[in-house]
C-alpha cells in the first residue's frame, strides 16, 4: 500500500502539480508530520504512520495544512488523508479556514484497515478517492447507546467520575483538527474558573462539547491523546447526533451546505484578518 502512495506522491511532485507534500515521516522510529519538498525526499522515512506492533500514528494533518497554506500563499500542497483527515478538510473549508481550498491542495487518500476502523469506531474509514488500500466496513456508533441506556443519576455519576480525572492539559483541544479559534472559551476565567484541578466540572467538558456541535468530525484523536482516558468522543458523538436530529446536518461531508452554527457568517471562501 505504501509503495502505491509513495509513487503517486512522487509523480505529483515530479510533474510539478504540487510544490510540497504534507505527510508523515519516520525518523529513528519516531513518526511526525513532515513536509516533503523533493521527490527524492520520499525515499527517506516516508510512512503512512504504521509501526509494527503499535496502532498507526495519526496527526491532525488538516489543521497543520491550515497553518502551512497561510504561511506560504503561493504554493500548492499535497496532503496525506485518511477518511477522518478528509472530513476535517471539508469542515475547515466550510468554516473558511482554508482560503482558496480548491486550488491550494491535492488530497492523496488511502483506506484504513478494518482493525483500525473497529478500534476507532470509524463511520467512514476511507476518503472519497483512494490511491491505495481496501475500503473497510464503516463501524456503527455503540458507545452513545451505552450511555443512553443508563438512568439520569447513573449518567451523572458516570460522567462526574470520568471528568474528575481531567488534568486540564488541553490536549483534546490542541489535537483537535477543527479547533481553530484564536480565543478559547476554555481559558476565559469569567466563563470557566481557571486554575482549578480538576477543572470546574461538568462545565469545562460540556462547554467544549457544545463547541463541537456541527464541527466534530469524529476522528477520535481527542480520546486517543487524553492522558486520563476520558471518553470525550462519546460525548461529541452525542452532540453530533443532536445536531443531526435538530438541524439535519452531518459534519465532514463535501458540498456547499453551511454548518447550522455558522450560517450567519460569510460564505465559504471568504477570509478575514479578524476571524
Amino acid at each position: 500500500m505504501i509503495e502505491q502512495v509513495r509513487e503517486h506522491v512522487r509523480k505529483l511532485l515530479t510533474d510539478g502539480q504540487i510544490s510540497a507534500f504534507l505527510g508523515l515521516r519516520n525518523q529513528d522510529g519516531n513518526i511526525a508530520p513532515h513536509i516533503f519538498e523533493k521527490p527524492e525526499d520520499l525515499d527517506e522515512g516516508f510512512t503512512l504512520g504504521d509501526v509494527e506492533g503499535r496502532p498507526p500514528a495519526r496527526y491532525p494533518l488538516a489543521k497543520l495544512l491550515m497553518t502551512i497554506v497561510s504561511a506560504d500563499p503561493d504554493k500548492k500542497f499535497g496532503i496525506l488523508v485518511r477518511g477522518c483527515d478528509e472530513r476535517a478538510l471539508y469542515e475547515l473549508v466550510r468554516w473558511n479556514q482554508l482560503p482558496g481550498a480548491a486550488y491550494r491542495f491535492v488530497k492523496v487518500g488511502f483506506a484504513c484497515p478494518q482493525e483500525l476502523a473497529d478500534e476507532h469506531e470509524c463511520r467512514k474509514p476511507f476518503p472519497d478517492e483512494c490511491v491505495a488500500g481496501e475500503k473497510a466496513q464503516p463501524v456503527m456508533n455503540a458507545s452513545v447507546k451505552e450511555i443512553d441506556a443508563k438512568a439520569l443519576p447513573e449518567r451523572l455519576e458516570y460522567w462526574s467520575r470520568v471528568f474528575d480525572r481531567c488534568v486540564k492539559c488541553y490536549g483534546c483541544r490542541d489535537i483537535c483538527p477543527v479547533c481553530f479559534c484564536n480565543v478559547c472559551t476554555l481559558e476565559e476565567n469569567a466563563l470557566i474558573r481557571t486554575g482549578d484541578l480538576p477543572p470546574e466540572n461538568p462545565i469545562f467538558h460540556l462547554t467544549r462539547a457544545a463547541h463541537m456541535a456541527g464541527r466534530c468530525i469524529d476522528c477520535n484523536l481527542c480520546t486517543e491523546v487524553c492522558p486520563a482516558e476520558i471518553p470525550l468522543r462519546t460525548l461529541y458523538k452525542k452532540v453530533a447526533e443532536i445536531v443531526q436530529e435538530d438541524f439535519g446536518y452531518v459534519t465532514g461531508e463535501p458540498g456547499d451546505a453551511k454548518s447550522p452554527l455558522n450560517f450567519l457568517g460569510p460564505d465559504p471562501g471568504h477570509t478575514s484578518a479578524h476571524d
Binding site: V144, I147, D148, K150, L152, P153, E154, R155, L156, E157, Y158, W159, S160, P202, L206, A209, A210, L235, K238, V239, I242, E245
Partner: peptide, 9 residues
Amino acid sequence: KLLAFSGVD
C-alpha cells in the same frame, strides 16, 4: 439534550 446525556435534568 446534552445535559440529559450527561445526567443533568
